[in-house]
Computed example of a mutant assay.
Amino acid sequence: MSRGPDAATQLERALVATAAAAGCPVAIATADWTRWASATFTGARHALTLTASPGPMLDHWLVGLSEVEFALRGYLVADIHVTRMRREGELVTVTIEALTVEER
């Protein structure tokens, strides 16, 4: 029996979907995650690199990213933020870090 997609897969899909809904399609260039735990929570730290076309809709989506309510089955996005953004002509490369925790 399959448990369904893990937190990393769900987060990637949610980022692509919310960006598309905001009018700024993105592509996942790279994605990696490591397990994470505290005394009371377990989850994962994620590092993702996205690519997109430049524009005001992308800028608006990135500024509001930390306020987005991501619907991940079995997980919560506890923290998400842009750590780097590089513009090269008609391509923007964005590095995002996130923390997901398992719902109990």
Rank of each mutant, 00 (worst) to 15 (best):
P54M: 07
G74A: 08
L50D: 06
M57V: 03
R45E: 02
L76D: 14
E67N: 03
E69W: 00
F70Y: 15
L72F: 08
L48S: 07
W61R: 02
A37L: 06
Y75G: 08
G74R: 05
R35L: 06
T51K: 08
W36A: 05
G43P: 00
V26N: 04
G74D: 08
G64H: 06
A71R: 15
S38A: 00
W61E: 00
A39S: 01
S38E: 01
E69R: 02
F41M: 03
A39P: 00
A78I: 06
D79P: 01
L50C: 07
L48C: 07
V77N: 08
D59Y: 02
A44Q: 14
L50I: 03
G55I: 15
A37K: 09
V68W: 02
I28V: 15
A27W: 15
L62A: 06
G74T: 12
D32P: 00
D32M: 04
V63I: 10
A44R: 13
C24I: 11
T51Q: 10
E67G: 01
C24A: 14
S53T: 14
L76M: 12
L76S: 14
A27N: 13
T34N: 02
M57E: 07
H60W: 04
W36H: 10
R73W: 11
V77W: 05
F70M: 13
Y75E: 07
L50S: 06
P54T: 09
A44N: 09
C24Y: 09
L76P: 09
L50G: 09
A78W: 11
F70N: 13
T30G: 05
H60S: 09
G74W: 00
F70K: 14
P56R: 06
T40N: 01
A27V: 14
S38M: 00
S53V: 14
G55K: 10
D32N: 01
E69A: 04
E67P: 02
D32E: 08
H46Y: 09
L72H: 08
T49W: 01
L58M: 07
R73Y: 13
G74E: 09
T30D: 13
W36G: 04
W61P: 00
L72E: 09
I28L: 13
F70A: 14
R35T: 12
E69L: 01
A39H: 01
A31D: 04
G55C: 11
V68D: 03
A71Q: 15
P25D: 07
E69F: 01
T40D: 10
S38G: 04
L65W: 08
G43A: 07
V26M: 05
A29E: 15
L62Y: 02
P25M: 04
